[in-house]
Design a protein around this nucleic acid. Structure first.
Lengths: 300, 300
DNA sequence: TGCAAGCGCTGCAAAAAATGCACCGCGTAT
DNA sequence: ATACGCGGTGCATTTTTTGCAGCGCTTGCA
């Protein structure tokens, strides 16, 4: 869309931090780019950049403008998507920010199902912790967020909330596999493999431990849920995860059991969008599909 | 704003109904305008106009695009307004749709007060009946609406509601001036000067009359509240209006008294904006001023 | 039925705008 | 002191936009 070119160039300058670097990225000369910025500022009525000896930085007016640019671009995408829909074909691009736990099974399944029905739609899946996911929505970087225990919930419109108890994960030979439900102290007796502090599971466990006057001393702390799942088979340790990220297969080498609700509060996996925003058709419909899929899980 | 030129041209074609007429309005040649439309459609990916033998008309895709254009323009105004505000000066333009009753006293006062504090702000005051006012908000034609008894209330976010009983208006020599409050049948005994059906006062009166099994037979029916006010002195008739549109001056040649609430329901004067929209600073602040002014009236 | 009028659209030349190049002044780091 | 990277500017060049003339088409009217 050519009339958005100036906005793209402004964004390039913001990213690059200087006109000369942005000029390289955008395959323009610095002088041409410089003049476009200057012309825009004149039309706009105020400077949008601070000129520093080392380059350019947005001033407050520029920050406000960037919001407008974001809204502008996403709203255009919404219109394009609606227009494509009335021509019968569903086209477009869906970006979703989601917790790591959704990556192994849930998201791939859901995307495949959607794409089978609408091959013209492409996806961006951004892995985000619970803080980042909300920022992603706010900055229009993602249309949807599916995240465990988000923090602020400002500007976050909840489309569906799925309760998810924290599960302990261990190798299937472990004695804990014999109980249907575990107490926190059962787990704390073992070696712990924990996700790092940014994650909701860790947050809930910390809360629960503090309530019992215990503290968590993991032997391994990691950002990778994959590593947690695999490590427990290496050293007979206990990891923690939410069930949507775990396989239901019986013949798996690892087993998992829920923690008692009276020990560790049940977390919520929230599907949401930016409050007040009208999503493109594709994103909106995919959101509905996710709601249906989550409802089905809740019914089990 | 030059990058919005294409949108302006599209809107001109929509208004004019043909490229050639729009070309005159926009001081371009038909060929240049034609090519801009064609180029835009190509970039956009779909035609936005139907080509008829008599000219151009928006197709459904074009209708969707027009929404985007409206949002785009108003959001830019919002940003400009916010930027102006952070430079200390308040600038911008406020458009308000309001009922006719606000024109003689309330709106001029309020605008003068606001402009005394912020001379850089200009106003558009659109006189609209209760149906049109809501359409104005929806189409971004007005930032605010101050309207008596609106109809639908969809997409209408109420900022303040002021109760307004219907008042009867007559020349001060009329015997009714001696009572503090009037019954409906008192008025129906007189010659009636009524606003036309689009207005809330008429609507309330019709409801009240129907409830009593009476019908309204006005000797004069008009869209002009001004005419109503003045006519009652010409023939000793009774008009009806809401108090915010009436002077409180004692020495006036006309008097007015409220109708009993048990006869005619009290209407509401609603201040509102389009639901979900973030107004420019100027409009938002003016809205706050109006709320304060209406609150003060309510306290009396 | 023929004809004028109005419509969208197109080839081509002229006008306008955007771009690239060379270069300036300035502050900073080496 | 010097070299580097920064934003900004004058000028020639390239690209884009515009105006002009004219095409084919449909509609309304004599």
């Amino acid at each position: 869309m050519k009339y958005l070119r100036t906005f793209e160039l402004i964004e390039a300058v913001v990213r690059a931090g200087s006109i000369r670097k942005a000029a390289e990225d955008t395959h323009l000369t610095a002088s041409a780019l410089n003049r476009r910025i200057q012309n825009f500022e004149q039309e706009f009525g105020w400077p949008i950049f601070e000129r520093l000896p080392r380059g350019m930085r947005l001033n407050p007016a520029g920050e406000l403008l960037m919001q407008h640019i974001g809204l502008q671009r996403t709203d255009l995408a919404r219109v394009q998507s609606q227009v494509a829909d009335l021509s019968g074909e569903r086209r477009g691009h869906i970006s979703i920010a989601c917790s790591q736990a959704l990556l192994p099974y849930f998201m791939p399944d859901q995307i495949a199902i959607y794409r089978a029905a609408h091959p013209g739609v492409s996806f961006t899946v951004n892995v985000r912790d619970r803080t980042q996911a909300e920022q992603d929505l706010a900055s229009f970087s993602s249309d949807l967020a599916l995240v465990f225990e988000p923090v602020h919930l400002v500007d976050f419109e909840v489309l569906y909330a799925l309760p998810q108890p924290v599960h302990a994960v261990f190798q299937r030979e472990n004695a804990m596999a014999r109980k249907p439900e575990l107490r926190l102290h059962d787990c704390l007796a073992h070696k712990l493999v924990l996700p790092s502090a940014a994650y909701g599971v860790r947050h809930l466990l910390e809360l629960a431990a503090a309530r019992k006057g215990r503290s968590l001393a993991p032997i391994v702390e990691t950002e990778s849920f994959d590593l947690i799942r695999h490590y427990v088979t290496c050293e007979d340790a206990v990891g923690f995860q939410i069930p949507i990220g775990l396989s239901a297969e019986k013949q798996d080498t690892i087993a998992h059991r829920p923690l008692a609700e009276r020990d560790v509060p049940v977390g919520r996996l929230l599907l949401g969008q930016k409050k007040g925003r009208t999503l493109p058709v594709a994103s909106s419909k995919f959101g509905q599909q996710l709601v249906a899929a989550l409802e089905q899980r809740a019914a089990h």
